[in-house]
Amino acid sequence: MQRSAPPSLVKSRTHEVCGAGAYMFALTLAARLDGPTLWVRESWDLRQINPTGFSDLVSPSQLTMCNTENQLDTLAVAEESLRSGAVSLVVMQLSKPIGLTEGRRLQLAARHGQSTGLAIISEDMGSHAAETRWRCAPVFDAEDSTLQMWELIKNKSGTLGVWHVRWNAASRRLFVVSPAGK
């Protein structure tokens, strides 16, 4: 098993993440980039990210939420904000698969604005244009309540891999640990 840290996401690109730990992954990324973050979601979505839950991870004041009517607006908002370069991370919650054109436009916008994009998608909904795709899932551990398994399932410029990570709230850092029971 690898013990090295997971590769940091390439800036100026859009990435994808799926799985039950996707929100944690997005928030960890926001904490690591440590800049203004735009979170785009569709307004019908009843899942609400809870600022009191992640305030020790990333300050909620860095977050700006956008409620859109449909996925078209979500993509337009994400593209415009990536292109402007005013935010360091744009997280978009996608409900439908996006085509190659949309994915490529997001990549171009991210490259233009030097900011990172992250799409939270469902399983098997990935786009070919994404730079990397991650599958994140929480892992049971009796002592630790932050253990996660991050699986890199697509990488345009590197190898794939699996990491077990946990978040240390005191040092606000991510630690790579060996998988439980091994």
Binding site: S43, C66, T68, D73, A76, E80, S81, S84
Partner: peptide, 18 residues
Amino acid sequence: DLISRLGSRIGLENIQRF
């Protein structure tokens, strides 16, 4: 400025913060 531009598309009240 970004919020102003996005607001003209999706409505300024749909851009929120906690």
